[in-house]
Design a protein around this nucleic acid. Structure first.
Lengths: 244, 244
DNA sequence: GAGTGTAGATGCCTGCACATATCGGTGTCA
DNA sequence: TGACACCGATATGTGCAGGCATCTACACTC
């Protein structure tokens, strides 16, 4: 599944990124390139390339005569795929899931609205076909096929919006959907309501009814989020201070 | 303003990133590390570090025995600050502005809703103070101060949501607002309606009225987007195909 | 068509020179 | 005596040059 990339660069990046995300290397901590070479048992070039990548996503800064300093979480790019993955595997998993769910709840209704206005016709047709098959398959309880279709449904909506920032959320949504089934949060049969909402969204998009598409999508998302919310219950929120 | 970072690494990254974004180095194009050394007149380490960063944001892939291949735009991370900046300075500026505006229209209402539910009290108080000063300053036509306050207003909302993904959009929003004034798209006095909307959002958040906050925020955002939309009129949309 | 050899590219390592930010000492002035 | 400005020493990232290791696309053989 996850493509093996056993290069030393990759390994070094993984180790450092994970240590920072878990708080093992706390914000403000200063490391020396030389000590990282010894610790990771790799050469300077590997350390430097890993540090450069971490720098580009805001996790460290490198200062002459000082070393490599770990930056606080509010400096990190929370849209970076590595950071999302590392946080998913850490104590911050709940907070990460919540952040993604809230982002989804913001984006998907607007994506549906835009898809109703802009999506190419073949995409709209396929969307309805997928929704209709979801109904059939869902009622039969074929959950593995249902997951496939569900994933494709949301991917089509996000892609059909014609907004590339929305489209890149496909991967995150897919992971969320997959996680929901593997974590046993899905019932044996999808709720009849949920099936209907997918149909409503698909029909509205096919008919170019933007407002209806947004409303139906919002209803659907908010419902699924309520199902998922136990995953992050009690996770504290972080309010990053505004700068000036 | 823009922090000077005249390191060779930074320069190499800028040059390569910009060339890819402008299409000067099209998707599928394959380069050799050696040729990049010669072309950029830098050493192997600088080239390799720049390539590693580009790789981490999905702009290139590096394959043994082949070289460094430029990836198509749908592989890029559209949330990366470098990519956004490069696109802003390219022909894709309009499309980039539209993507950001749509993202904002999705996120800000939800952020307002969450702020009404979760923001710490001092933030809510300050939000109302800022909105009130915006009204006074706006009516006096002190546009430079108005821009400051407007920026802070939106930053407080995004930060007050307690969602770190929303909070990182502060920078993009600030740039949009600043760009609107420097591009002469702001009237001499803000519209009275706009002032009122800011007040409505601030009051709803202060009072913890989530739905009202979302609605007022949505109204506000959609209005400002209509003002801005000429910036990207006629830009073609891109629909990235869904994979499986 | 399957197996194999090889050229050619990235991956990784090392030693060195350079630039620069920090630290500590010294001297001057109030 | 104390505060402050200057200045040199030193540690550390930055960049360079080159070498060997490793993998793999491709051509060649059978």
């Amino acid at each position: 599944m996850t493509s093996r990339q056993p290069s030393l660069h990759h390994q070094a990046l993984e180790i450092l990124g994970r240590r920072i995300v878990t708080g093992d290397l706390p914000a403000g901590h200063v490391m020396l390139a030389e000590s990282l070479e010894a610790e990771l048992k790799v050469s300077r070039s590997v350390v430097r390339e890993a540090v450069r990548v971490l720098q580009s996503i805001g996790m460290v800064e490198s200062i002459k005569r000082v070393g490599i300093r770990v930056l606080p979480p509010q400096a990190w790019n929370p849209f970076d795929a590595n950071i999302i993955r590392w946080r998913m595997d850490s104590d911050a998993r709940g907070a990460q899931l919540r952040a993604l769910a809230e982002l989804r709840s913001a984006v998907e209704p607007v994506a549906s609205e835009l898809a109703a206005q802009n999506a190419p016709f073949p995409m709209r047709r396929e969307l309805l076909q997928v929704a209709e098959e979801m109904v059939r398959v869902g009622r039969q309880g074929k959950m593995e096929r249902f997951l496939e279709l569900d994933t494709r449904f949301h991917a089509l909506v996000l892609s059909g919006s014609g907004n590339e920032m929305f489209a890149t959320l496909i991967g995150q949504v897919a992971e969320t959907l997959a996680g929901r089934t593997t974590h046993g949060l899905m019932p044996a049969h999808p709720k009849e309501e949920a099936l209907q909402w997918h149909l409503d969204v698909a029909r509205a998009i096919l008919d170019g009814k933007a407002t209806a598409a947004r409303r139906a999508s919002a209803k659907m998302i908010n419902e699924t989020i309520e199902d998922l919310s136990p995953e992050w219950a009690g996770q504290p929120r972080v309010f990053v201070p505004v700068k000036p």
